[in-house]
Amino acid sequence: MPIDLYYMSMSAPCRAVLLTAKMVGVEINLKTINLMQGEHMQPEFLKINPQHTVPCLDDSGFVVTESRAICAYLANKYGKNDKLYPKDPKDRALVDQRLYFDLGVFYASFADFYVPIMFRGQTSIDASKRKKWDEAMNYFNTFLADQEYAAGNHLTIADLSLIASASTMEAFIPTIFNDYPKIKEWIERCKSQIADYHDLNQVGANIFGQMGQSALAKIQ
């Protein structure tokens, strides 16, 4: 049976899964769920994922949700080696920490900033939320001070998750990383190392960016 991925291309977490699947060499059957049109609330999807979120992976009846869990599952099951998700406890712990950092700090601070602007009609910048986002970017820039990738000196699933987040931020505000040179260098490094980066990630990020910039243009 094919591996089905329920996803939406403008979603950074969904694109992290696409990148991981490509890097481990597994083919997936894409099933678009349009959140804007409420397709995630349809009964047939709720049977698969009662949490009604994307991404959602169905591997021959085994269903996994939450992008970082899906990335770990794909790397564990289909990876040709453990480079993307190391088996060494210390190395894996660092990758996990960066994944949790993306979930709870890096992408979370961005979501707290953009969701009210794009989807709740907020018409002014919330300075406190922008400060939290800046703090998150500074943390990540510091992580990269003495290493090439998020969890060391080779690419892991932590980078795949974080680059999906970072590219979405950059599409939203193209100059956002100008004060974070290590992040900018890391982004270019990831682009050169990740297979089919543009088609699997940048295209969706750009769609998000167009919507985001349209919303930002209305800010007073």
Rank of each mutant, 00 (worst) to 15 (best):
M1V: 13
D4G: 04
D4V: 13
Y7Q: 01
Y7L: 13
M10C: 04
P13C: 04
R15G: 03
A21R: 07
K22Y: 00
K22M: 13
I28A: 10
N29M: 13
T32Q: 14
I33F: 08
L35D: 13
L35M: 11
G38N: 06
G38L: 15
H40F: 12
K47T: 01
P50H: 03
Q51P: 02
Q51H: 10
T53C: 01
P55R: 04
D58W: 03
D58V: 08
S60Y: 12
S60A: 14
S60W: 01
G61K: 01
F62D: 12
V64R: 08
R68N: 08
A75H: 01
K77A: 09
N81H: 06
D82M: 13
D82R: 13
K87W: 06
K87D: 12
D88E: 14
D88T: 00
D88V: 02
R92M: 00
R92C: 07
L94D: 12
D96W: 04
D96R: 04
R98M: 09
Y100V: 09
V105I: 07
F106P: 05
A108Y: 08
A108Q: 14
F110V: 10
A111Q: 15
D112G: 11
D112P: 05
D112L: 07
Y114D: 04
V115F: 15
M118A: 09
G121W: 14
S124K: 14
D126P: 07
R130G: 10
R130V: 00
K131Y: 15
K132H: 07
D134R: 12
M137T: 01
M137V: 02
Y139D: 02
Y139Q: 02
T142W: 05
L144V: 04
L144R: 01
D146R: 09
Y149G: 07
A150F: 00
H154V: 10
H154I: 11
L155S: 14
A158E: 03
S161E: 12
A164F: 10
A166F: 04
A166E: 09
S167G: 08
A171E: 03
I173D: 04
T175R: 01
I176R: 04
N178R: 11
Y180W: 09
P181Q: 09
I183T: 05
I183K: 03
W186P: 06
E188P: 08
C190F: 10
S192D: 15
S192L: 10
S192N: 15
Q193L: 15
I194W: 15
I194K: 14
I194N: 10
I194Q: 15
H198Q: 12
V203W: 08
I207N: 15
I207S: 14
G209T: 01
Q213M: 08
S214M: 14
L216N: 10
A217L: 12
I219G: 00
